[in-house]
Design a protein around this nucleic acid. Structure first.
Lengths: 213, 213
DNA sequence: ACGCGAACATACTCGGCAGTATGTCCTCGC
DNA sequence: GCGAGGACATACTGCCGAGTATGTTCGCGT
């Protein structure tokens, strides 16, 4: 029986970064059941494997979660954050950022949901001193990403393309509206990228209206 | 304005509803550490008591959580939902609803945060059949509350006070923005009700802009 | 002044989960 | 073709937490 399992496992996979698979499975599990409710065995089961595999790639459960968290921010920065420096008025740049952000919420939902969970862990969490430090790093990454929105709101007030609002508050209401997408969005069968882009456009249109000049 | 204020128990000093204290402590704990991470002993500790007290008032941990959830919705319906039937254009009514909703997020944060948690439990939860039924009830309550916003968006399109948008999507983006308040808001020392009302007004002003005609 | 039940506290059980220790197979460099 | 290490699986341990069983105290009606 063990020989069978290993034979099949070794057969169908060439080498698509096995560690990445564990990370994705963990993200999915954390999203579905929450961090604490997810056992390492759950993650392993989702992979058709055992704890051995998970612990081979990640030292502990918190560290596994931190990696999911870090990945979530990196995706956001790469996909949406980059649009901060781009052509056009601040309003245009903000529109592109929001659009990309929403698409991330839909397409990497499992990772993005855990980003919210991590914030709670930070605000109230009772973690060891060592973990507190890395958690602090992660929160700084997140804060940096949020700052991109803050700065763009300020730039919008400066170049006249947007109303002069409190940039921090505007950032929060905007991110609230588009972060919430990850909460209610649930992919439909046979959905294409085009569908998602259209939905993202609609959301952006509704949400951005309140900030434009 | 039916102020049926009959003299109910002139002094509640004798029994200040001990059950309510347990409920509030549970809400606080669930918010801070999450549902699974919170032990019944944690709730008891927060009260300076033991498990015995908690289990005396609530049969199990899920049922305790369900009560927190139910309370959260009732508060929202009572404070914000009632403004659906009120004077003025749909835009005016929506404004009052949003304003009250935001104030709930700030003033009953512990309960409201758990409302979000409950949705996840519903979407992915692996609960017993019995709990699934009561959870279904709670989700219907929540859906009913959301419908009030949906209907008001539709009414706004009808009476011309608001843009003609997809009411469901508009409801989601709006509720996202204002639900998010419970995520980032953290009460400051010496803060008064007036401060909160002012903040709520600012948020409403920003957020509603995109929907108005 | 007595019994009774509400409102807890105390002392257990028992299953589940993080983490570990060890074994096994397969690959790759040499 | 062989030793070493990477990539897992298997088999444990120890603890923590939900739930229970059983006191204990106090107020209340009679």
């Amino acid at each position: 029986m063990p020989a069978d399992m290993q034979a099949t496992a070794a057969n169908d996979l060439i080498s698509p970064d096995r560690r990445e698979e564990v990370l994705a499975a963990a993200a999915e599990c954390f999203m579905r059941r929450g961090y604490e409710a997810t056992s390492m065995d759950d993650v392993a089961d989702a992979l058709g494997a055992t704890k051995g595999r998970v612990y081979h790639h990640f030292r502990s459960k918190p560290e596994l979660f931190f990696e999911v968290f870090r990945r979530a921010i990196f995706i956001l920065i790469r996909e949406a954050g980059v649009h901060e420096t781009g052509p056009g008025h601040a309003a245009d740049r903000l529109r592109r950022m929001a659009r990309a952000h929403i698409l991330c919420m839909m397409e990497t939902q499992a990772f993005q949901r855990n980003l919210t969970l991590g914030v709670d862990l930070y605000r109230f969490g009772e973690t060891s001193e060592e973990h507190k430090a890395t958690l602090e790093d992660l929160m700084n990454l997140r804060r940096g990403y949020e700052d991109a929105f803050r700065r763009t709101f300020a730039a919008g007030a400066a170049d006249g393309s947007m109303k002069a609002l409190d940039p921090s508050l505007a950032m929060r209401t905007l991110l609230g509206a588009i972060n919430w997408v990850a909460v209610w969005y649930s992919p439909r069968a046979g959905e294409t990228r085009a569908h998602r882009e259209k939905l993202a456009e609609e959301i952006v249109a509704q949400v951005l209206g309140g900030y434009l000049a």
